[in-house]
Design a protein around this nucleic acid. Sequence first.
DNA 1: CGGTATATTGAGCAACCTCAATAAAGGTGG
DNA 2: CCACCTTTATTGAGGTTGCTCAATATACCG
Lengths: 231, 231
Amino acid sequence: MKPAFHSKSDKEVALLEELKSDHVRVSAGADVILPEQSNAELYTVFSGWLFRYKELNDGRRQILNFALPGDLIGLQAALFEKSYYGVAALTDAELCVIPRRKLWRLYERMPEVAYDVTWLGAQAQSIVDENLLTVGRRNAAERIVALVASLYKRMDLLGGVRDGVMDFPLTQQHLADALGLSLVHTNKTLARLRTSGLFTVADGRLTVANPRGVGRFARYFEAPIAPRPIV
Amino acid sequence: MKPAFHSKSDKEVALLEELKSDHVRVSAGADVILPEQSNAELYTVFSGWLFRYKELNDGRRQILNFALPGDLIGLQAALFEKSYYGVAALTDAELCVIPRRKLWRLYERMPEVAYDVTWLGAQAQSIVDENLLTVGRRNAAERIVALVASLYKRMDLLGGVRDGVMDFPLTQQHLADALGLSLVHTNKTLARLRTSGLFTVADGRLTVANPRGVGRFARYFEAPIAPRPIV
DNA sequence: CGGTATATTGAGCAACCTCAATAAAGGTGG
DNA sequence: CCACCTTTATTGAGGTTGCTCAATATACCG
């Protein structure tokens, strides 16, 4: 887990601990931020998976991105009057809370951490950028591979991959909602991909047979991810 | 133009002016940041339209969002080693440059401006979020209306709308690239929308016949945009 | 042991795509 | 001022990806 993170001075850690007044546990399926919610707090993911989403009046839902340990959640929601998206827990998860009213103090007194907050925000942004490219321009098979490859790479950096196997808590419905596809077509495309032998998704686990092969297909393993700050 | 912006103290303005070492003019079609470019600077749009995009090896292109005066451009590119997207000018444009190496100083010495940078980054993020919802879950007609409505609303706040008419420098190719559609289908859908009488796009101008009607169609005019900081 | 969430498969349909040709508009050099 | 070239817009024809509807497994849960 360590190589992916920067280190911080003792003083910063102490101040951070003071700001993070709360730890919260949420269980799988729980809402963390509701769409349209006011005064949402800022969170840091300590463990577990969550996802950010938007929906239309008629129920169509688009998952914007998935959050893994170390990710920031709710930056926009904390900065604006109300949230323009929802956040739900995919698995049981632990979150650190940074109260929104203390955010300004953080900028005043801990510029380095403030910088890291911006950095993490930009990092999340670039994931959404990539998802928009995926949904806008890739076909169904490419979309699935791109998402799987992205999650695999991120999880690998967190030390969550062993022998090409990792936990994969998404249902096919989540995949469909993240990729702008219907559930049925997601299922059929997944079945077709299964025969390709690149990877398998079953029983909440993802098994990648040949990481380099997946990478070539999705042109996705190429760009390494930079070390990131912890907040 | 004023009501959309916060005001700043003289001291802050002075410091900002010092940081913005350069003004740059670019002409329509010029690249501001190339995909994969290293050491890109951070920019503030002073006048004109620009857009951020990503592309795949085979030439498929996805426009991520459009930048209007007051928007920040290149935050991720300035924060990371290299850029994961390109930026091009849609019209002639003027940009203020904030050199990337001075960004940290800004966080150290001007926490309020640092906060605003984060705010503007989050604002841009929420636009990309909305675009992802649009591309992932709306049909062709809805996509066009959603984008047009969004640009209309933003331009209106900047004072760029008079009697329901505004400059609209996008070609149909830009619309298609932003919406995840083919050029041909964009054209045909646009033609069908024309008969609906909600709005017209012609000669680089957008004319909205009935702003409230467009809003109802796209469920998009409802949420007002908050006042924003200037950087 | 029913009940709910998830996964799978078939059938038919339509939204959107690609290919291709033509019009219309603007810019440039002679 | 005209001929030419490039960019942008338009329209038709036909194909395919991905959608909806619907039925059936499969697994987990209390």
